[in-house]
Each structure stands twice: as C-alpha cells, then as structure tokens.
Design a protein around this nucleic acid. Structure first.
Lengths: 73, 73
DNA sequence: GATAGAGTTATCATATATGATAACCACTTA
DNA sequence: TAAGTGGTTATCATATATGATAACTCTATC
C-alpha cells in the first residue's frame, strides 16, 4: 500500500467516525483547536499529519488513538 | 495525558517491539530508509513524527499501524 | 433570492519534521 | 589497545505540517 493511499484511508476513517457521531468538520476542528479547513485537508488525505494531530482528533472523537488507524492492510 | 508523554509512550512502544524482535536501531532505521540517529530521536519521544514515518516503522517491524499506538489511555 | 451551514481549495507565514553528518559514550571482543 | 556495535545528541539545510484567512460551491431553509 503506498503513502497516498494510507493517508486517504486514515482520513476516511476519521470522517466515518466523525459522521457516525453526527459531528460536523467545523465542530470537530474546533474541539481540536484548529480551523475546519485544516480538518478538510486531513480527512481528504492531503497532508501527512503528525502524531499529536492524530491525538487531538482521537481525544475530540473520544476514541483510542489506535482506533483511527484501522487499514485492513 | 499531555503531548510529551504521548510521544514518549509511543517511542517506548516502538523500542519494546523492536527489541522483542532482537533488532538494532541501526537495522530498523535502515529498513525505514533513514539514519539511526533519527530512530533514536523517535524512540526517545523527541520529535512529533508523522503518520507516514509511523507507517514506515510499522512495515519494518511487520506489525499493523495501530499496534504501535497502544497507550492504555 | 437571500441567508446560513457544511465542506473544499488556495495561499501565506511560521514552526518543525526530515534526512544527513559528525562527534560522542558505553560495552564487547579480538 | 584498537576496532566494532549500539545508542545518543547537536547541528544543519530543506521540505512540509500547521494554523489562519478568504473565496468558493452546494444544499437547505426562510
């Protein structure tokens, strides 16, 4: 699996979990203390984000860190 | 749990898994295509590394991505 | 058709990850 | 003692993440 795909898959995971909670990108971004545009970038797999950004998101979604990285590799 | 601790814990996870496989930092770094000094930085929690770096390490250790992020949060 | 909410994209400045190199310490072994 | 292995730390240039802003589309609702 190449790099682009990894980021796209993880972004899709985040989006799916967010939507399952009925939360908007706007709100999720706010809980993470950044702008919705940045969340869009992450969910689309358009940035190779860091562990701490992943952590902020996991906290905001109230799920364990590892829960965002299911890739069926 | 604060940011510093997160990175230190994940670094410790990587180190523990690497050692369980009897692999040196040198070798693991080589499998990831970077220098041992960078692996040392990661294992010590001294850098907020990216998803793709995590992915390289998970591939090199032959474990799923999520396996590196167990934090008992 | 005007307003508002949700999401996307482009752009920018700034901070920091990345990859590399080199110097260093500790330990082992020839 | 010297050489090799494993790991750490500092430093550097370059690439890119981050956070913010603004402009835009689309959809729904008033």
């Amino acid at each position: 699996m190449n790099s682009e795909i990894i980021l796209i898959k993880i972004g899709a995971n985040i989006k799916a979990i967010r939507e399952a909670q009925g939360m908007s990108q706007q709100i999720l971004a706010a809980k993470c203390n950044f702008e919705k545009a940045n969340m869009s970038r992450i969910e689309a797999g358009r940035t190779n984000f860091t562990i701490l950004t992943l952590y902020k998101i996991s906290k905001a979604l109230n799920i364990p860190l590892a829960g965002l990285l299911e890739l069926d590799e």
